[in-house]
């Protein structure tokens, strides 16, 4: 039982990291960045390339750390570029326009990745030893430990960043009342750009961590992105704690669904949708989402 909880938490923390990217951007722009999953996929590929290149020279674990940083940086860069050319010009257009732009980009990115990197999946070849550790009847792989440790640390850091720092406050201000934030001298464009950087860097970390256990392939982003998007909606889109909660909840329930309720593995992904429907019927704006209706 505890084992499933642990496994669920591990998957869930990955969903949570990616869900944060959706929710942060939604917070400041009130828009779903459907290209998020593909941006993190590109970052994961870059990390893989950097890793494969470096591991012949240096200690694999150090190569892996450098690869993560490179992945984060390239996802962030790509996100900034996309924001500038594909979203910002549409900021005052009807809401559907940037959404379509994002969906289009998502298709372009995953196809470009297939073209450049091939459709065959690749993997990080053992950055370090992954022999499972046994604690009583609990089995933890070092990868799992790394995933949990990294993602939880990132979430805690993010929490304090948003709460304590000036940029964090500015992000909250922009997300609540962009016009007033501007009048307070806040450069909203800069805050929005920063939000994209933050979200996509977190996403890249999630992409890299998840491909330790699975693999890297061009549609990696769409699959994990869809789950994470559902997690963000379940938790209450725009709400940071909601994204974390939604991600973990989804991961745990999925794992339990397969292991305890005996849902066939092939149907595992349907857990997310069923959960989404139930939650939205019960609370239309998600578990932690505010239920105040938008003014028309």
């Amino acid at each position: 039982m505890l084992q499933h909880l642990l496994n669920g938490f591990t998957v869930g923390s990955i969903y949570a990291l990616v869900a944060l990217g959706y929710t942060l951007v939604y917070g400041v722009l009130k828009f779903i960045n459907f290209a998020h999953g593909d941006v993190l996929m590109i970052g994961t590929y870059i990390a893989l390339i950097v890793f494969n290149f470096l591991r012949t020279f240096i200690e694999p674990s150090i190569a892996f750390i450098i690869a993560i940083l490179a992945g984060m940086a390239s996802s962030a860069l790509l996100a900034v570029l996309i924001e500038r050319v594909a979203y910002r010009p549409l900021r005052h257009a009807p809401r559907l326009a940037p959404l379509l732009s994002a969906i289009g980009l998502s298709v372009i990115l995953s196809n470009t990745a297939a073209l450049i990197f091939g459709t065959k999946s690749q993997r990080f070849e053992m950055p370090f030893n992954n022999t499972p550790i046994h604690w009583g009847n609990l089995v933890v792989t070092p990868y799992q430990g790394l995933i949990l440790l990294t993602s939880l640390t990132m979430m805690v850091l993010l929490h304090f960043f948003i709460k304590m720092t000036r940029t964090g406050k500015a992000m909250r201000a922009v997300s609540e009342k962009p016009m007033v934030a501007q009048l307070m001298g806040i450069d909203t464009d800069r805050i929005i750009r920063f939000t994209f950087i933050l979200g996509s860097a977190l996403g890249a970390v999630a992409g890299i961590l998840v491909s330790l256990d699975y693999k890297v392939y061009p549609t990696l982003g769409s699959l994990i992105g869809l789950k994470a998007f559902i997690a963000a909606v379940i938790g209450g889109i725009g709400n940071i704690s909601g994204a974390m909660l939604g991600g973990i909840l989804l991961g745990v329930l999925e794992t339990y669904g397969v292991a305890v309720l005996g849902i066939p593995v092939g149907y595992k992904d349907s857990v997310a949708f069923v959960l989404l429907i139930i939650i939205l019927l019960w609370r239309p704006s998600g578990i932690l989402g505010s239920n105040k209706r938008e003014k028309i």
Partner: peptide
């Protein structure tokens, strides 16, 4: 048009935001 979800203190601190992100980094 206050930032309703922020504390009173934070509302006023936001108004002092306009400094560079570089100095944010330094103060971190």
């Amino acid at each position: 048009r206050l930032f309703r979800d922020m504390t009173v203190f934070e509302n006023v601190m936001v108004a002092r935001h306009h400094t560079s992100s570089f100095s944010t980094l330094l103060s971190l």
